[in-house]
Nucleic acid binder design. Sequence first.
DNA 1: AAAACATATTGACAGCTTTCTATTTATATG
DNA 2: CATATAAATAGAAAGCTGTCAATATGTTTT
Lengths: 101, 101
Amino acid sequence: MELTNKQITVIFKALCDENRVQIVRLLQNGEKCACRLLEALQCTQPTLSHHMKILCDSGLVVGRKEGKWMYYSISAEGTDIAVQCLRELTKVSESSGCCCK
Amino acid sequence: MELTNKQITVIFKALCDENRVQIVRLLQNGEKCACRLLEALQCTQPTLSHHMKILCDSGLVVGRKEGKWMYYSISAEGTDIAVQCLRELTKVSESSGCCCK
DNA sequence: AAAACATATTGACAGCTTTCTATTTATATG
DNA sequence: CATATAAATAGAAAGCTGTCAATATGTTTT
């Protein structure tokens, strides 16, 4: 998995905003309709729509349209990529000196 | 480990900027002096200092002062917290319906 | 076809981020 | 002690982000 610096920022930008973190928490209970999220979120519908776009762009969340409703859920694949990305990015190479370099 | 939404945003804000992602990559090879990072980074010294502050605030990076030099490295503890935080945040509860809710 | 509803898009504005130059603080050296 | 060096801070400018009101798009129902 080779991600550019730019792609990495897109993933983690999703979690840079308190409202979006809250949305992810709400989705931990399973797939939710946008209107349900809106009820829980003290913001307007366009603002929610904006946040959902950023979450979907990051890959952490996926949307599914059903009639006039939009259902969102946490993406297992997307979150696996994010976790692996974070692990690899913060992994210190074995040949690197400890604190005594 | 109970982090607030705000604390979570502070962690991931560190990785929302391409320059900071690049800095973390540079630190994968081990502890580095600020002046070394500056050489590799096409930005001014105050800008680097600003980014290092955000990285340290996130806990992903730690700084160590030695004389007039400042040495930075990836924090094993901080990155473990970040990975665990990301895992927990994106974990879907077992009782949640699949796609058929 | 018209009305109602759910969501997305547009455009505007306030506030935050990134970046720079200039300056300050702290440390080492002649 | 004066000078040089490394890093942090202050202040300002440009650009990005989050937010809203208004509007558009798409879907269902009457």
